[in-house]
Design a protein around this nucleic acid. Structure first.
Lengths: 267, 267
DNA sequence: AAGTGGTCTAGACCACTTT
DNA sequence: AAGTGGTCTAGACCACTTC
């Protein structure tokens, strides 16, 4: 229960920000202290990363964490405010604070940016084309931060909307994490793929980085998406990360944008 | 100086959230009250919108605003925290809080998502192809929330990076706002176009919504970007908004993504 | 009634910038 | 030295959920 405990250093907080490494410090140390609430945030993040609190579960109340870490509720609150802004946790008034999960409509659309044009119906279907294990090519290994030749799981699938094949995804996953992932398990599983990763493999995606280009459909893509060779497609290259900025998925999506578009809000 | 003043209603705050419309209210009114800090945020936003504080300028200190609005500093602070998170203002420790402006490297990249691939040099150049006034077609009018046939300024330009034509932009701007905008003024102006809009026309963009598709270059695009007809291009349709969610720019960009990519962070 | 997150206040001290 | 934003505390009450 008490596996998360602050360093002795953390406890030195006086009435104000004495942990911020001011001039009062005895030995002229240096490594740039951070505010107390940042330290608390880090401790909570470590609890998430270690699996002490799993996706969907309730974390301790602000008061509980405050007394555990020997800080005021306001300081815990500020830490959780930031975690909430980063979508790592979800607050629910009257109930508590929960670890974010992909098993919610809310989280789905953060990572599915392709939306139907106005008036276009949208019934999604998934079809797994192929799943196999292979040795990571150099480029894949580099992006997944593993060694070239390490085992990776390769997945190819087609997503259709209202019967129209629209997305061709190729995925590469670190074999060390996704042991026992088969086409059957992918097909059996209802719900978002990131939900399966979370529940079956204990790997929770928290952010992703995408690079988008326009390309022409090659023969393979044309056949699977049932369009002519040369059809312009969005090429979306995504690297997904779990806690600690560890890459856990490389995905190359080809999106048909005749009746759909990639939406993005700039602010 | 005091043009922003709270409603009498706003002043009824007791020691805690009595402005949130609790059961203590005399007449059983209704229209769902908002927290004090949200009301303060709205008042500050109105100051930005009205031009009381212009882009780049200093707004009053937290203490000053607190005493003006008759609330505690903490409440003003929370309001400004949100405005800062929305990039409407920028805080600078020791100096004060400033109205956000597009005359900063910081703000540029929020709205320019096309980045060079690794190792590709990046010296931008602009070339205005054409500027003219015309009557808004129905679709343009709808997106700009003006009447069909109203005057709009049409701009076509090509952006090159290190001598390679890469972006063809078509812009439509409401004629009522952008009076006297000519190709000459666009060419004279050094710096980002949104900076010119802000300084010369008093219109500050705060957010934009984009829809992205893959298309083939038509003859016009092919000629201006010096590629073959049929070259796949990113089609980026953007609507930009100023304060109060008022649309002030419609932009259709065609991006050549042979040596560049549209980058997006999902979180 | 008790517990949780949400809002608000008042006061303290720190770090940074300018005078 | 004075002013600004940044951090931290302690205590109060509200709104919501559960028991």
């Amino acid at each position: 229960m008490n596996s998360i405990t602050p360093n002795a250093q953390t406890l030195s907080a006086g009435p104000a920000g004495s942990a911020t490494g001011g001039t009062s410090s005895a030995v002229g140390a240096s490594p740039t202290f951070s505010p107390l609430y940042q330290q608390i945030k880090l401790l909570i993040t470590q609890g998430l990363q270690s699996g002490e609190w799993k996706p969907g579960e309730l974390i301790p109340s602000e008061m509980e964490l405050a007394s555990r870490f020997k800080v005021s509720q306001g300081t815990v609150r500020k830490a959780i405010d930031e975690l909430s802004a980063e979508n790592l946790v979800v607050r629910r008034q009257g109930k508590g604070t929960f670890v974010a999960t992909h098993h919610e409509a809310r989280a789905q659309f953060r990572f599915l940016r392709l939306a139907p044009d106005e008036g276009v119906p949208h019934y999604p279907e998934n079809k797994i084309i192929e799943v196999r294990r292979l040795r990571a090519p150099a480029e894949v290994a580099r992006l997944l931060d593993i060694k070239s030749g390490d085992s990776v799981v390769f997945i190819r699938r087609v997503q259709s909307f209202s019967g129209v094949p629209t997305i061709l995804d190729d995925l590469w996953l670190p074999g060390a994490i996704f042991k026992g992932l088969t086409a059957e398990r992918l097909n059996e599983y209802k719900g978002p793929m990131y939900g399966l990763f979370e529940t079956e493999f204990g790997t929770h995606m928290i952010r992703a980085s995408e690079q988008i280009r326009a390309v022409c459909a090659d023969e393979v893509a044309a056949q699977l998406l049932q369009v002519d060779v040369g059809m312009p497609l969005l090429n979306v290259e995504r690297v997904s990360f779990t806690y600690g900025d560890k890459p856990v998925e490389l995905r190359r999506g080809l999106y048909l944008t005749l009746q759909h578009h990639y939406r993005n809000e700039l602010s």
